[in-house]
Structures are given as structure tokens and as C-alpha cells.
């Protein structure tokens, strides 16, 4: 057993420093907001479901390090494995939308909606698809992290 073993064994206590937990508490919403921002802007600027999902997972991972599994699970609310399934269903749903309209599976559909005055918003199935990716990536990464953390 090297010196790091003892550090690792006492990880739970060592990691629960006040600085880290305070920082995590404050950073969490910011990082999550940032991940959502990346997801939304992904279609036009660098970002997207993959990055967004990973950043969100990193945020929860940070929380996991700062607090513990129960806290993180409570924050997540949904079991991460459910998130994986949910994400896959969202992706499937976005693909099937075109299919129900008689087009090949995964054909994109777009709609342009007016918000107020000159402001328009363009929504299409690819955006939903991207959100599905976000959920799958987040769910999968959190499944792994939580399962590992619960091993102790």
C-alpha cells in the first residue's frame, strides 16, 4: 500500500472540504445552464448534445466529488438509467415524426414560429434529436459514475 492508498481510503472525508462543496453548490447551476446553452446553440455555433451532455455530467461529477452519492442522486431526481432510455426514446420520437408524415425515418421537419413582432424562432426535429443525445450522454456517464461511486 502506497501513500496514495491511505489518501484514497479517506477520500470521502478529504474531498468533503468546505471550499469544494461551497464552490460546487455555486457552480452547479452555472455549469448546468452553460451545458443547456451549448446544447441550444449547437446547431449554429460550436456546441451540441454531445458536449452539452458531457458538461452536464461533469457538473454532476463535481457534485459527486464534493458531496456523496445520495446527494447527487437527489439532485438528479431521475435515475440515470432512465435518462438513457428517455434520451433514446426522444431520439426515436424525433425520427418517427417524419416517418409518420410519410417520409423516411429520421427525415428532419422544420417549423418557423413568430414570437413577437420581428422575432422568429425556428424549431425542427433535429433540435429534439440533439436534446435526446444530451440525455443519453448525461444518463450514460452518470450511470457509470454513480455505479462506481456506490461501490465503496
Amino acid at each position: 500500500m502506497g501513500p496514495f492508498e491511505t489518501v484514497a481510503k479517506g477520500k470521502k472525508k478529504a474531498m468533503r472540504s468546505i471550499i469544494l462543496s461551497t464552490a460546487a453548490r455555486f457552480l452547479m447551476p452555472m455549469i448546468l445552464l452553460f451545458s443547456a446553452f451549448l446544447l441550444l446553440r449547437g446547431h449554429n455555433l460550436p456546441g451540441g448534445g454531445f458536449v452539452g451532455g458531457l458538461i452536464a455530467a461533469a457538473a454532476f461529477g463535481l457534485y459527486l466529488l464534493a458531496f456523496d452519492v445520495q446527494e447527487t442522486r437527489r439532485l438528479l431526481r431521475i435515475d440515470p438509467r432512465t435518462l438513457v432510455g428517455l434520451g433514446l426514446l426522444v431520439v426515436l420520437g424525433s425520427g418517427l415524426t417524419g416517418w409518420f408524415k410519410g417520409k423516411p425515418f429520421l427525415t428532419a421537419l422544420w417549423g418557423r414560429y413568430r414570437l413577437t413582432g420581428f422575432l422568429h424562432i425556428e424549431i425542427g426535429t433535429p433540435l429534439i434529436f440533439d436534446a435526446g443525445i444530451y440525455l443519453v450522454v448525461l444518463g450514460s456517464a452518470m450511470t457509470m459514475l454513480l455505479a462506481l461511486a456506490e461501490e465503496d
Partner: peptide, 19 residues
């Protein structure tokens, strides 16, 4: 309908691969 070409490839042009 997207300007990020990498993203449009991922979620639209080659969406089945991504799935």
C-alpha cells in the same frame, strides 16, 4: 437549417449513425 456543419452532419445528415 443549421450553420454548424459538424452538428448538422451529426443530427441531420447522418442522424442514423448518431442514433
Amino acid at each position: 437549417h443549421g450553420r454548424n456543419i459538424v452538428n448538422t452532419i451529426l443530427v441531420d445528415f447522418r442522424a442514423l449513425d448518431t442514433l
